[in-house]
C-alpha cells in the first residue's frame, strides 16, 4: 500500500468507528425500547468477535510446516495461565508477548 492508500484505509476505519458509536443515538431516540434482536446481538456478539480476532491474529500460523504453531501455542498457554493465576490483564499480555519474542528470536529461529 502506498501512503495515499494507507491514509484512505485509516479514514475508512475512523469513519466506521464513528458510525458504530453514533448509530444508536441516531437510530434509537432515548425513551423508546431497543429492538429485541439488537439487544440479543449485544449480548452474544462480543464473545464471538474476540474469538474471531484471535483467529485473525493467528491466520498465518501453519500447523503442517515447522515450527507447527508451537511458539504461538506455548505463548498462548502462558497468557491463559498467567491470567487465570493473577487476573492482571497487562501482566498476562506482557508475559505472553515476552515469551513469544524470546521463542521466535532465540528458540525457533
Amino acid at each position: 500500500m502506498n501512503m495515499t492508500q494507507q491514509l484512505l484505509t485509516i479514514a475508512v476505519v475512523s469513519l466506521g468507528t464513528i458510525l458504530t458509536r453514533f448509530l444508536p443515538f441516531l437510530l434509537f431516540p432515548a425513551g423508546k425500547p431497543t429492538p429485541k434482536y439488537i439487544r440479543y446481538l449485544g449480548k452474544v456478539l462480543p464473545s464471538a468477535v474476540f474469538g474471531l480476532l484471535v483467529v485473525y491474529c493467528l491466520k498465518h500460523v501453519s500447523l503442517v510446516a515447522a515450527p507447527f504453531g508451537l511458539p504461538e501455542a506455548i505463548a498462548l498457554v502462558v497468557v491463559i495461565g498467567l491470567h487465570l493465576w493473577k487476573k492482571q490483564m497487562l501482566l498476562s499480555i506482557a508475559g505472553g508477548t515476552v515469551v513469544y519474542m524470546l521463542l521466535v528470536q532465540l528458540v525457533f529461529m
Binding site: 474476540f50 505463548a75 513469544y100 519474542m101 528470536q105
Partner: peptide, 20 residues
C-alpha cells in the same frame, strides 16, 4: 529486535476472550 512483538495483539484479544 522487534520480531514477535506483534503477539501483543494476539495476547490482548485472547485475554479479553478469556474474560468474556
Amino acid at each position: 529486535d522487534t520480531r514477535g512483538l506483534e503477539f501483543v495483539m494476539t495476547a490482548m484479544f485472547a485475554v479479553i476472550f478469556l474474560e468474556n
